[in-house]
Design a protein around this nucleic acid. Structure first.
Lengths: 115, 115
DNA sequence: ATCATATTCAACCTATCGGTTTATCAACGG
DNA sequence: CCGTTGATAAACCGATAGGTTGAATATGAT
């Protein structure tokens, strides 16, 4: 994986456990143990997932005695969403077919009805 | 990586080369050679990236003689965007601090000014 | 001090990623 | 038929992901 911000964000989101953790955190802060509870894996594994999320800036961790409460941070989600939105609605769906047709005609293969 | 749809989509987006390819495709169809041209890597590497994008449903490939024109498909982007949008604006930013305060008070640690 | 609890660190393992090189397949043009 | 071009397949490689277990650290409670 590359370590630019967008790549880290998307990579962090590319795991169902981590997405579930974020979904949980959207309801409010939670400790590592609380976050780990629903999952059929070791606490350490969840701790690693949290580290990934933290490195991606998707969560921050406070300190409350021996607990490290996790909080969702939305900034990277904004960035990711903005990136996607630049492409999710593009006029090319129609345009592509036109362009494709032009290319076919220009290359003199009008007879190939392959689409 | 898990292979549910969202995971495949986010994983596909977690690479700058693949994002650049999608950005290029947003301007219209392109062949593998055309897509590979800007990158300092082998054609085969780009071909692999395209396979990843295809598996994620982010592109489809046609057949035009020996060319395999690639097209951007927006459906997975919609899904990904929808997932993010559920969490990118959440009321928890303020609420978290309140909840945290409540927890502190309830656990009888009002004196610990650790925030 | 000692013990329990919450969390992290470290070492390890297997599988996958992202790239390479070489070989192969598919389609056109002489 | 043969060569060229576009693209994929296969084998390989080093690095990283995602999990494990076991030890260490930090804080609080007795």
């Amino acid at each position: 994986m590359s370590d630019d911000e967008l790549s880290r964000t998307f990579a962090a989101l590319a795991d169902p456990t981590r997405r579930a953790i974020l979904a949980r955190l959207a309801e409010g802060e939670a400790t590592v143990n609380e976050l780990a509870e629903p999952f059929d894996m070791s606490l350490q594994a969840v701790s690693k997932h949290l580290k990934v999320l933290e490195r991606a800036g998707l969560i921050t961790r406070g300190r409350d005695a021996q607990w490290r409460p996790c909080r969702l941070e939305t900034a990277p989600l904004e960035t990711a969403s903005a990136w996607i939105d630049r492409y999710r609605t593009h006029w090319s769906d129609r345009f592509d077919r036109l362009e494709r047709e032009i290319r076919r005609v220009e290359s003199g293969q009008e007879g190939h009805e392959h689409g």
